[in-house]
Simulated scan of single mutants.
Amino acid sequence: MEFDFSEDYRLLADQLRRALEEAAPLEAARKTVDTGQINVTAWELLGEMGILASGISTDFGGNGLGPLPLCLAAEAIGWSVAAIPTASLYHATPLIQSCGSPEQQDRWLPALASGSATACVATDSALAVEDDHITGVISPVSGGTGASVAIVRANNQLWLVDMAENAVEQEALESRDPGRQLCRITFRNTPATRMTGDDADLALNHAVVCVAFEQIGGASRALNGAIDYSRERRAFGQTIGSYQAIKHKLADIWTKIEIARAHAMYAAWSLGTGAVDLPLAAAAARASATEAYLFAAQETLQVHGGYGFTFESDSHLFYRRARALAACYGPAVEWRSRLAARLIAGETTKH
């Protein structure tokens, strides 16, 4: 079976890439390294194009288009290295959609669909809860700075916390990639509402599939930049791209990207159809895409030589983002372990 996006989706992907290249050029990503500011223009663009609403039911202000447009947008985000709160888009929104109570969904999903609110997820650290009030510290939290609502775990249950409460403190943390802001959140007997569902696996798989597409987009842009540079830079009287060592390096990067793309495409199909092998497909996509982006970021930096280590080069932008994405949602080795465990248990893909 061949897995590929339809012609309409490919046109959408092209439009998204072109639009984000204008709204979030690499020069804007370079400025973010200094300022740490989110690219509001790019975030508003995703709202105008309906991407923020694509995974949300029409009952709550969404367009009900499902996860595929979001996967395309994630690849375009990776291509542009845009500084936007993707944790809200990839993880928090589907978590509220699948596990939130009707009241929570009615309050937050329309705001998330319009882009007027963002959300963060911090379920790795267990917090204390008493009489529907949360106490404790969670750190680091991706996308927590300026978030309107947080999803946390306490007493083995998911809770939703309105970040506008006075009993919430946010402290910005230094990040290797300022385009992916990190913070520490302190709850001091903060009111919280319990989420009715606790099946967080679907939202987590949704998140890692989207991240895989973002990693593929970033790796592809890094490769393109290295190819262009190898055609211009001359050494010993000829372009460095004519040397076999450089050709092999670029070919190895391309191979890893295409392997990751194959896994991501299958995972996107599994996500869109609700296939039972989604956990298997998501783990494979996460592991392969993480490896591809890290490899591409490291090797394309070497292709640029000494220039690649300067701030003026784009190489550090991809390296920063590759390292940041590799650290979120657990390292690749953890996802390889999940994949191996399922394969050993006898699980296989359905196609």
Rank of each mutant, 00 (worst) to 15 (best):
S175C: 11
F187A: 01
N156F: 15
D177R: 07
G179E: 07
V161K: 01
A150M: 07
E165F: 15
F187T: 02
N155D: 15
N155V: 13
Q170T: 11
S175D: 07
D177G: 05
Q181R: 11
Q157D: 12
C183S: 10
V168I: 13
Q170S: 11
S175W: 12
L182N: 03
V161A: 05
L182Y: 04
N156A: 15
L173P: 05
A164E: 14
A172D: 08
N156D: 14
N166A: 15
Q181G: 06
A150R: 00
E165L: 15
D177A: 10
V149L: 10
R180F: 12
N155Q: 15
W159T: 01
A164C: 14
A167G: 05
G179K: 10
T186S: 10
E169A: 15
A172H: 07
I185D: 01
A150K: 03
A154W: 07
R184G: 00
E174W: 10
I151H: 02
N155Y: 13
E174Y: 10
N156W: 15
E165T: 04
M163R: 03
I185F: 01
R184F: 07
Q181D: 06
R184V: 06
A150Y: 02
A150C: 08
W159V: 02
L158P: 01
E169N: 11
A154C: 12
W159I: 03
C183M: 11
E165M: 12
R176E: 07
I185W: 00
I151E: 04
